[in-house]
């Protein structure tokens, strides 16, 4: 797919899609362009729809640890040799990798979660980064959310519980839960800017195989928050009957 000279480059569209331009003037320009350019919308849609290639983690790990020179392909690029080597190294490497793989941070609920939540922060002083549960952020930082589900499709809702006892709908802002396609990361359109109230906050992703009444989820979250004295970090499950994954952050002075 080619682009017209006046259209943004693939690089610009990909940076937009992956949230690297969040809050910038360039983001606004690109979004405005996309609204008026069907071809670029189609290009971006095609980028988002593309399946990632199969991950051969054993081969990648074995090559990375073997110190193989990537820039000068030699025997590695003789295909039969390579695949024999991968097959041989793969079993061992996969077993070692599975054993050594970092465990999930305990702050994330895992209880058989069908969906995973990742949070991307644009800090008030500029950098954009993926954050881990337990991260310390400051008022003015902006968050975006990426959801991945192993199911073919899931209906999700995202809410935030804060230390002031408030429960906020993050996504969708109104109406019933939204449906997302599974097997690939989905960057939600919604973003939130952290307000000035300091303390713990808990973002909860609720995912179900059927549509969820988000207002009911919010009501249950309010009850759960009240039950633990208003400390979002002490909230366990909301009792929605769906899969829940939580992500805690703490807001501190910049």
């Amino acid at each position: 797919m080619t682009k017209a000279p006046s259209c943004p480059s693939e690089f610009a569209l990909e940076r937009l899609r992956f949230g690297e331009l969040s809050g910038s003037a360039q983001e606004r320009l690109l979004v405005a362009h996309l609204e008026g350019c069907a071809e670029c919308r189609q290009r971006q849609h095609a980028f988002a729809e593309a399946e990632p290639p199969r991950l051969d983690s054993a081969a990648i790990w074995s090559r990375a640890s073997a110190g193989h020179r990537i820039t000068q392909p030699s025997w590695w690029h003789r295909r039969p040799m390579r695949w024999y080597a991968i097959a041989a190294a793969g079993v061992t490497a996969a077993a070692v990798f599975a054993w050594l793989a970092p465990r999930r941070v305990p702050d994330t609920l895992t209880k058989g979660s069908a969906a995973q939540l990742r949070v991307i922060a644009k800090l008030h002083n500029g950098p954009v980064m993926r954050i881990e549960p337990g991260a310390q952020l400051s008022p003015g930082d902006r968050l975006r959310f990426e959801v991945f589900t192993h199911l073919p499709e899931a209906s999700i809702a995202l809410i935030m519980l804060d230390s002031a006892g408030a429960v906020t709908r993050l996504a969708p802002r109104e109406g019933p839960s939204v449906s997302i396609v599974g097997q690939r990361p989905v960057l939600l359109d919604e973003a939130v800017e952290l307000d000035g109230a300091l303390g713990g906050e808990r973002i909860v992703l609720v995912s179900c195989s059927h549509a969820v009444d988000v207002n009911e989820v919010v009501a249950k979250a309010r009850r759960a928050l009240a039950d633990v004295g208003g400390d979002p970090h002490r909230v366990d499950r909301l009792g929605t009957g769906c899969d829940e994954e939580a992500f805690s952050i703490t807001k501190v002075e910049p």
Partner: peptide, 10 residues
Amino acid sequence: YRRYGAMVLR
């Protein structure tokens, strides 16, 4: 890999 793999391959 899951996030960027398709972009790199393309």
